[in-house]
């Protein structure tokens, strides 16, 4: 349980981190919170010769809500996201997701940027950033670009980010009125990772119909995905229990579920359906509560 020898670098700016990454290339690995990378290094599955610790790059910290967009520094920890007033106001489901990652030690050290770049297929955030239509800012040698969450997760631990890119920021559009969201998962009792996890966002119009439905699912396939069949089935419908149940049946449509020693493909597909129905119901109840509060306020 002792990692192989490595050189340790501690840049203070993204530019300095970038230079180190370019100098050492394949032999280097960015260290964010280290809650996935360090265990792998201790098992010697990963043996980077150079570790570039971006924990002291202050520009990557901080969470701001500005002009209807939540901007989260890539080095914000899960615990900071869970407790952030800005996140709780603009995207409460992201705080809800952060609160169920790993255990408290992991949440105190692990970062959102690190988790997203690691792209474990059973991680929690991917479902939620897909449902929230988040955008990621990546900085590379040729400049800065933004990638929508929907184009980011390509496979197990495989993303659209190049080996020489650093994630600097996660942007989430703040929820407009009459929207509700929820993240639910069936955790592996030992690791807490999601056997299946579903994030659902529902927006209602004045008459109570769904004008906005987004569903992100993690843990089931080799990468998190948007359940577009579920979204289409609910669009412009009244979200009663029967409608949610019918829509949730499409949770794993066209998806190749991943079997492993923890759960079979069939079980994961079953979980996807059940959790989708429950997350949709919770998102709807929250959206309706917001709507009721809004009406009460306008009467007062």
């Amino acid at each position: 349980m002792i990692p192989a020898a490595f050189a340790y670098h501690r840049p203070r700016t993204v530019q300095a981190a970038m230079r180190l990454l370019l100098t050492h290339g394949h032999d280097a690995k960015i260290l964010a919170g280290g809650q996935s990378l360090l265990p792998m290094m201790k098992l010697r599955v990963a043996t980077p010769a150079h570790l570039i610790d971006i924990g002291h790059v202050t520009s990557l910290r901080g969470i701001r809500l500005r002009q209807g967009r939540l901007r989260i520094g890539a080095m914000a920890t899960h615990r900071e996201i869970e407790l952030s007033p800005a996140v709780r106001r603009a995207a409460p489901v992201l705080a809800e997701t952060a609160a169920v990652i790993g255990d408290l030690q992991v949440r105190n050290l692990g970062t959102i940027g690190g988790a997203l770049m690691h792209a474990d297929p059973v991680a929690d955030y991917p479902a939620t950033v897909l449902a929230l239509e988040a955008e990621f800012t990546l900085q590379g040698p040729s400049g800065v670009r933004t990638v929508p969450a929907a184009e980011f997760f390509l496979g197990p631990m495989t993303t659209a980010a190049g080996p020489d890119e650093i994630m600097t920021e996660i942007a989430v559009p703040a929820a407009p009125p009459m929207r509700g969201a929820a993240y639910l998962k069936m955790p592996n009792p030992a690791s807490g990772f999601a056997l299946a996890g579903v994030a659902a966002v529902i927006g209602l119009d004045q008459s109570g119909r769904c004008v906005h439905v987004r569903v992100g699912i993690t843990g089931v396939a080799s990468a998190a995905y948007r359940a577009s069949g579920v979204e289409a089935a609910l669009s412009w419908k009244e979200p009663n229990d029967e409608a949610l149940e019918r829509a949730a049946a499409a949770a794993a449509d066209g998806v190749e579920a991943n079997p492993d020693i923890h759960a079979s493909a069939e079980y994961r597909i079953h979980l996807a359906g059940v959790l989708t129905r429950r997350a949709l119901a919770l998102a709807r109840d929250r959206a309706m509560a917001v709507r009721r509060r809004g009406r009460a306020a306008s009467r007062a």
Partner: peptide, 20 residues
């Protein structure tokens, strides 16, 4: 090897992705 003991849960997905 260590590839199997640690990577088992990822293997199917990796194989599929590489085939793609």
């Amino acid at each position: 090897g260590i590839l199997m003991s640690v990577g088992h849960r990822l293997f199917g997905g990796v194989a599929k992705q590489l085939a793609g």
